[in-house]
Every structure is written in structure tokens, then in C-alpha cells.
């Protein structure tokens, strides 16, 4: 797989939000307007890039048995750095993201990429993978936020849209709208993607903590499949 494919798979074929279904919490929570969605996307991309680079550089040093705690500490360190930078240089964004900024620590995309990619690949490949996944995350968030902001609020990036601003569907910017638009987007992706929607595309198989719990919940859940 060349570098370009490695980069572009994060945007389309293995889009972290719509295909791998990781990082659903920040996706739903910060996509009420485009500005905070872009802020969340960039912040998560920076953390993902740093953590992927460091984890792949240290992949031969970190003992296999304690790798998850090691990853979490590294990720938490980078999140704290990003948190301080955002607080210092973009206080408005800090106020908009609120609790979701420190919660990047438990964003499944970051731990998931560490577990699925960075610990098995070279530093450069991991950096490219992180950029691709980050771009996929940011673009999806921006697309979803655009839908919710344009139709729910009648604005885009704060610019008022004629006609729609008088007839907006405010429920879209509230919690139910988030679930609804997200479900709709995944259905559209399913419709146009060539391969059939996988059966185990969410739940245990897609969850990076599966490594920690060694599929314990799959045993409980899987019996009815």
C-alpha cells in the first residue's frame, strides 16, 4: 500500500466515523455548528498525529502486556497539551467544546488507531495514517455540522442563509437531530458503498476496548447473531 492510498483510506474507504463507527460521542456532541466541529476535528487530529508518531516510535520498547495503559498515558499527555494550547489561544473554542476537549482521551479513534495501526507500522506510515484518519474525522464532522447548522439554524459558519433562516428546523440542532442526521449519513454511505454493511460493524468488534476486555461482551452479545 503506497502513501497516498494509506492517506486516502481514512477519508473514504475506512472513514473512522461513518465506516468504522468510532468516536461517536464527540461526533454527535460537537456537530451542532460548523465552527466547533472543525475545532474538535483539528484538536483530535493533532492528538492522533502526536500519539501515532510516538506510539509507533516506541512500539518495540513498550511491553505487550502493559501496552494499553502506556497508550492511555501518552494520549492523555498530548490531550493535556492541546487543552492548554486551546485555552491559551482560542478561549472561545474552549468554551464551545467544554467537557468534550478533555474527553478526547477516551475518543475511540485515537486508541483504536494506536491499537490497530501505530503499534504495527513504521513512524512515517503511522503519521500518514493519522493525517488521513484525522482528515476523515474532521471532514465528516464538518459535513454533519453543515447539515445540522444549515437546516437547524439557517446559518453556515455564522453566515445567515436567506429563506432558511426564517424556516429553520430547530430540533436538528438539539440532541435528537444529532442521532437522526448521523443515522441518515451512515445509511447514505451504506447505500453507495460497494461492500455490504458488515454485520459486526459496531458493538464489540469495532470497539478498541475489545483488546482490554478480550471480547468478553461479544460472548454475551453474540449468542443471538
Amino acid at each position: 500500500m503506497n502513501k497516498l492510498q494509506n492517506f486516502s483510506k481514512g477519508i473514504i474507504r475506512e472513514n473512522p466515523v461513518l465506516v468504522l463507527v468510532l468516536g461517536t460521542c464527540p461526533t454527535l456532541a460537537t456537530s451542532t455548528n460548523v465552527e466547533s466541529a472543525l475545532g474538535m476535528g483539528v484538536a483530535a487530529t493533532v492528538v492522533l498525529l502526536c500519539s501515532n508518531i510516538v506510539i509507533s516510535a516506541l512500539r518495540k520498547v513498550i511491553p505487550d502486556k502493559v501496552r494499553i495503559p502506556c497508550f492511555i498515558v501518552l494520549i492523555a499527555g498530548f490531550v493535556t497539551m492541546v487543552q492548554m494550547l486551546v485555552k491559551a489561544f482560542a478561549p472561545a473554542l474552549d468554551a464551545a467544546l467544554g467537557i468534550y476537549l478533555p474527553l478526547i482521551v477516551v475518543n475511540c479513534i485515537i486508541l483504536g488507531r494506536a491499537e490497530m495501526f501505530a503499534q504495527k507500522n513504521t513512524v512515517i506510515d503511522s503519521a500518514v495514517d493519522a493525517l488521513g484518519m484525522g482528515a476523515g474525522f474532521t471532514l465528516t464532522l464538518a459535513a454533519m455540522a453543515s447539515i445540522r447548522e444549515i437546516f437547524g439554524n439557517g446559518t453556515w459558519m455564522g453566515i445567515s442563509i436567506p429563506l432558511l433562516s426564517d424556516n429553520h428546523i430547530s430540533i436538528l440542532t438539539m440532541a435528537p437531530g444529532g442521532f437522526f442526521v448521523f443515522g441518515l449519513l451512515i445509511a447514505i454511505v451504506n447505500k453507495f458503498s460497494k461492500h455490504k454493511p458488515r454485520k459486526k460493524d459496531f458493538g464489540c468488534a469495532g470497539c478498541p476496548s475489545a483488546a482490554v476486555c478480550s471480547g468478553a461482551c461479544a460472548v454475551k452479545e453474540g449468542s443471538d447473531d
Binding site: V21, F179, F180, G183, I186, A187, N190, F202
Partner: peptide
């Protein structure tokens, strides 16, 4: 068909 699984769960 395209709503099967996760999308309908989200709706």
C-alpha cells in the same frame, strides 16, 4: 436495506 443495523438504531 441501507438502513439495516446501525442507521435504524440511531434513528
Amino acid at each position: 436495506k441501507s438502513f439495516k443495523g446501525l442507521p435504524i438504531t440511531l434513528v
